[in-house]
Amino acid sequence: MTRATAVPETVTIHVPFCVVKRGGRKEMQMPEGATQLRRMDNTLVKALARAFRWKRMLESGEFATIAELAEREGIATSYMTRVLRLTLLAPCMVEAILDGKQGPEVTLAGVLKDVPLVWERREWRLD
């Protein structure tokens, strides 16, 4: 069997992407218009779960104050109050996070920084 054309030794493939930092790790992001698999932000999902768990513990009367609960959990009271604000997100936003449909710009650090701003942002593409 003979070949009509020679096979090149090196093949170069161009794949456009950019690297973004999410939850303390680097992640590849596809360019605009490219189909992308939905990926849950585990850091954000974990924070949501903690927030709703802590809220339930406070509402049940298991702990009288946030400070008491924070001491038991071994975390700073100020951090706990910021995470508890996640329970104020609209249900559609919580659902988007759990489904991995929030925009790539939506991170735990950004959400904890200012919850009211999150409501106004256009990064909540619920497609």
Rank of each mutant, 00 (worst) to 15 (best):
L58Q: 01
C18V: 05
M93I: 14
H14F: 02
T43S: 13
S78A: 15
M1F: 00
P8D: 07
R53S: 11
A6P: 01
V111D: 12
M93A: 11
V20D: 07
A6L: 00
D127V: 13
R22L: 10
V19H: 05
L69R: 05
T2S: 13
E68R: 02
E123R: 12
R39G: 09
I75Y: 06
L48V: 08
P91G: 04
N42T: 13
T2C: 00
R25K: 09
T107W: 02
E95R: 10
L126A: 09
E73S: 02
I66Y: 06
T107K: 08
E71Q: 05
F52C: 02
F52E: 15
A90D: 15
E62N: 03
I75A: 05
V15M: 03
L98A: 12
G74T: 05
E62I: 10
T5E: 06
H14Y: 07
L48A: 07
G74R: 02
A67L: 10
T77M: 12
F52W: 14
E123Y: 14
E73A: 07
G33Q: 06
E95D: 15
E62T: 12
Q29W: 04
R3C: 01
L86R: 08
V20R: 14
E9L: 01
A70Q: 06
A96F: 06
A67H: 02
G61W: 06
A6Q: 06
V20C: 08
E95W: 12
A67R: 11
G110R: 15
C92G: 12
L58H: 07
G100R: 02
R72L: 03
T10D: 14
V115R: 01
N42P: 05
F63Q: 04
M80W: 12
A76W: 09
N42S: 11
R3A: 00
W119T: 11
R121W: 14
T2R: 15
V83Y: 11
T65R: 05
T87Q: 09
C92A: 10
Q29C: 03
V19Q: 09
A51K: 01
G110W: 15
A4R: 10
K46D: 14
